[in-house]
């Protein structure tokens, strides 16, 4: 089953979600390129995969854990020195629209 062709609207939607400001020629170009990439990956659909479970991870590994033991993190001054702006030992960010999610 071949996937539907990527449209210009798809590219604009994804660009918005990724907060990318694309120019007209870029939208044109990417619509073609993304379509080609997905088309290439879609070759897999030609195979009969009914017996193959979906792959979530390429490595044959499960259960990689770490013990629940605390270690000191990074020095706060060093961390905050990387921030564009700080206030009261916190990262200062522009006003946020909408409420928190997650």
């Amino acid at each position: 089953m071949a996937p539907e062709r990527i449209t210009r609207a798809d590219v604009e939607h994804v660009a918005h979600l990724a907060r990318l400001a694309l120019t007209e020629p870029e939208i044109e170009e990417l619509t073609g390129q993304l379509g080609d990439i997905l088309g290439y990956a879609a070759q897999v659909s030609a195979l009969d995969l009914t017996e193959v479970p979906p792959t979530a991870h390429p490595l044959p590994l499960v259960n990689v854990f770490r013990p629940d033991e605390a270690r000191p993190g990074v020095d706060r001054d060093e961390v905050l020195a990387q921030a564009p702006a700080t206030e009261n030992n916190r990262f200062r960010v522009p006003r946020i629209l909408g409420e928190a999610r997650g």
């Binding site: 629940d68 605390a70 990074v74 706060r76 961390v79 030992n89």
Partner: peptide
């Protein structure tokens, strides 16, 4: 109620001084 965070060894503690339980993973 673990001692550390989900994916790094920073302490999971309520009410600590701001940005003192942070590391490259959780940042």
């Amino acid at each position: 109620a673990t001692a550390t965070k989900l994916f790094c060894s920073c302490a999971n503690e309520f009410g600590a001084e701001p940005n003192t339980n942070v590391c490259p993973v959780c940042l």
